[in-house]
Design a protein around this nucleic acid. Structure first.
Length: 319
DNA sequence: AAAAGTCTCAACCGCCATTGC
DNA sequence: CGCAATGGCGGTTGAGACTTT
């Protein structure tokens, strides 16, 4: 974390030549930005910074909004399903964090990147070093090269907090790069197929309980009301259920996390002023234009480019 | 209890693409 | 076409929290 400081750089051009703040955001700054965004929606970020009365560059505002203030953000630890998905999508997409994040609504690219670098990569590294005398480069940004794989054998990853195992194929890394098809196939198959999205004709997913795309699960209990889906990948985005808004928002406030002042900025109150209802066909209706604008991006974010993804998978599997 | 080491994650940096003039 | 402004992304940093010694 960085201490707040006053500085200006070539990236922080301000027409008033004011020095721009950097570093950690104060609760007051958060409130200003949140208020502005709720009232006006997203526009030119430089204007946002200026008009919201923030001595920050537009980029900084954008980052703060996307990574922290957005109402649909899911907070707290990654679920095991999310973890599996990240591994899966990373194997497909490499370090394209924004694309991975787009497939995990409520999670940001930064969050996923941090999680990967701090947790998953380390786990895979440990795994690799304990199973192979010749560890490969885990930091490779290229897809499909994150595992040291020896052909013909399998390794099992036991997740720390749950009972399932992931079997992964082992290929030799000595000659050419691992066969993507086998790797992809195996990773794909080792995931519970239930964790994969089932899209209906309208572009949403079957078995969803919210307006957001969602996974079904047979092996994990899915709690629909009261909190985010316990197992769940998308549970925290239950913003569309009438009368449940405040509850949803509060639930995502983790007292152990650094969002200690999140309640103070009255996000719940601001949002509860907007009347959002969920219609029968799982599409959101809003009587507040601002909210509509506000959430539009989130819904787009949550949509899966599933066809594209499956095309990639197919090409891996059958190439 | 204190020092050292490790981890987490918010935020910045720099690059590239796009857009508008 | 060239330039500047802006947006978006991935890589990196570093302060604070946490754990170990």
């Amino acid at each position: 974390m960085r201490k707040p400081e006053i500085c200006s750089t070539k990236n922080n051009i301000n027409i008033n030549k004011k020095k721009l703040r950097k570093g950690l955001w104060s609760p007051e700054e958060d409130e200003k930005l949140m208020n502005y965004m709720v009232r006006n929606g997203q526009g030119c970020w430089s204007d946002v910074a200026r008009n919201a009365g923030l001595e920050r560059c537009g980029k900084s505002c954008r980052l703060r909004w996307i990574n922290y203030l957005r109402p649909d953000l899911k907070r707290g630890a990654f679920s095991t399903q999310e973890e599996e998905l990240i591994i899966h999508f990373h194997s497909l997409l490499g370090n394209r964090w924004s694309q991975i994040a787009a497939r995990l609504p409520g999670r940001t690219d930064n969050e996923i990147k941090n999680f990967w670098n701090s947790t998953i990569k380390k786990r895979l590294k440990n795994l690799s070093s304990s199973t192979s005398p010749n560890p490969s480069d885990e930091s490779s940004p290229e897809p499909n090269k994150d595992f040291n794989i020896q052909q013909g054998s399998y390794i099992s990853i036991q997740h720390a907090n749950y009972n399932s195992y992931m079997s992964m194929p082992m290929f030799t890394s000595s000659s050419t790069s691992p066969s993507p098809s086998i790797l992809q196939n195996t990773i794909f198959n080792t995931m519970n197929i239930d964790t994969l999205p089932v899209m209906d004709h309208s572009g949403y997913f079957n078995n969803t309980v919210t307006t957001m795309p969602c996974f079904s699960s047979q092996n994990h209990e899915v709690e629909i009301k009261g909190s985010y889906l316990e197992n769940g990948v998308f549970g925290s985005v239950n913003i569309g259920v009438e009368g449940d808004m405040e509850n949803k928002c509060n639930i995502e406030t983790n007292p152990n996390h650094s969002d200690y002042y999140f309640d103070d900025i009255k996000i719940n109150n601001m949002l509860s002023n907007c009347n959002i209802i969920e219609s029968n066909n799982n599409k959101i209706e809003s009587r507040g234009e601002v909210v509509e604008n506000l959430f539009q991006e989130q819904f787009n974010l949550g949509e899966w480019d599933f066809e594209e993804l499956m095309k990639d998978v197919s090409s891996f599997l059958f190439s």
